[in-house]
Nucleic acid binder design. Structure first.
Lengths: 212, 212
DNA sequence: GTCTATACCGGGATAGAC
DNA sequence: GTCTATCCCGGTATAGAC
């Protein structure tokens, strides 16, 4: 339980919020694998010890980052979907595009939100942020497959769409497109178009999730 | 230009080859972002200085790893495709599945092969390994789209398929599937099935590559 | 609430012994 | 051809001053 730090301070009114904002920049640039508390402190302009006044340790900080990321991702998807047309395939594809762009521009993705080690029961406050995100994604997917199709087809499709959207952002971060110099908007468009193909295809009755 | 080390030595007949093999294990476990020469040396059972007898520095070693990875990926794809049926969509989908499985099990992927900084002209020996891989993938994709379709559709489809295959492996590595406990064979199947959907769908005449 | 200073660790890389 | 020893750097985390 980190202190809330809503009062005014010396260098910052709210260092905690400043750290979370800077964390998004760091994640966008280097990914969670290279994330360091020291680099975060340097970016905010405080000493390397300062973050430990607000977060017990690195893992606690990353948990707060994950909760923040889940909220932002859900909000941005819901906003974009609200502007999309009524076609349910198009709405799911829009969400895929937003995922790809946000992961590139703000480092916000499932790797941050579902970090290994963050799935155990002790992180219930985090789960209160991740569950609404997953509910939103599942609702969009169920609409896209149509009411006569079941959860099984929706689960498979959601995995496919997320793998695609995650993959486009990962290839950008991994430098696989370095000679193309795609922008995040380019990749959002690619991700969206490909997701529409996946979601629009006729269901294959032989395909089931590997696990229920 | 690293020395070839084909002669017999003290601890190993061929430390260079042993290092490349162990690098695949490390990459499979932790990804290239966490790769360290020291951990590699420890795994092989030599001192942390020993690798520097065979590779000038970390970057040179990773370049050799990349060339090795490109060869293995191409070989495994060609072998799997040879066993696949004649349907060109199925052949491309098979390649996607192999990519996903190899990246999970051996850490071999585009992030290793196309590392940022390895695209400049000085790495011509590496390019002699990457080009045949890309040629193989492009040929499979051109077959899948059919002769009447052009390169543009094939380029888009290949990006989509690679993003999907890369994405499934990335989500596994990033822990996004940790509660499912999928095996690499499970994810190979998912990747293959979804790639078949992408490749089998009717082409959308409005879709072009963002850049030629 | 943030600072400086410090302990400790792991990784990159070099020097020189064997 | 590999070893030990060493240096430098950056990251995690704590202690104590202001």
């Amino acid at each position: 339980m980190t202190e809330t730090t809503s009062g005014r301070g010396y260098h910052h009114g709210d260092l905690r919020a400043a750290l979370l904002a800077a964390a998004r920049e760091l994640l966008a640039e280097h990914g969670i694998a290279q994330f360091s508390v020291a680099a975060l402190a340097k970016r905010v302009g405080v000493s390397s010890a300062a973050p430990y006044r607000h977060f017990a340790d690195r893992q606690t900080l990353l948990t707060a980052v994950a909760a923040d990321a889940a909220d932002r991702l859900r909000e941005q998807i819901e906003a974009a979907v609200a502007d999309a047309g009524p076609d349910p395939v198009d709405r799911l594809a829009t969400a895929a595009g937003v995922y790809t762009r946000l992961r590139i521009d703000e480092g916000i993705g499932l790797d941050v939100i579902l970090q290994p080690g963050l799935d155990d029961p002790s992180y219930t406050d985090l789960h209160e942020h991740t569950r609404p995100l997953m509910d939103t994604l599942m609702a969009l997917t169920l609409d896209a497959v149509g009411p006569q199709e079941g959860y099984r087809r929706a689960l498979v499709l959601l995995e496919d769409v997320l793998a695609l959207a995650h993959g486009y952002s990962a290839m950008q971060r991994d430098g696989a497109f370095s000679h193309h110099q795609y922008t995040s908007a380019d990749l959002e468009a690619k991700s969206r178009a490909a997701a529409a193909v996946l979601a629009g295809a006729e269901p294959d009755p032989d395909r089931n999730p590997v696990h229920l």
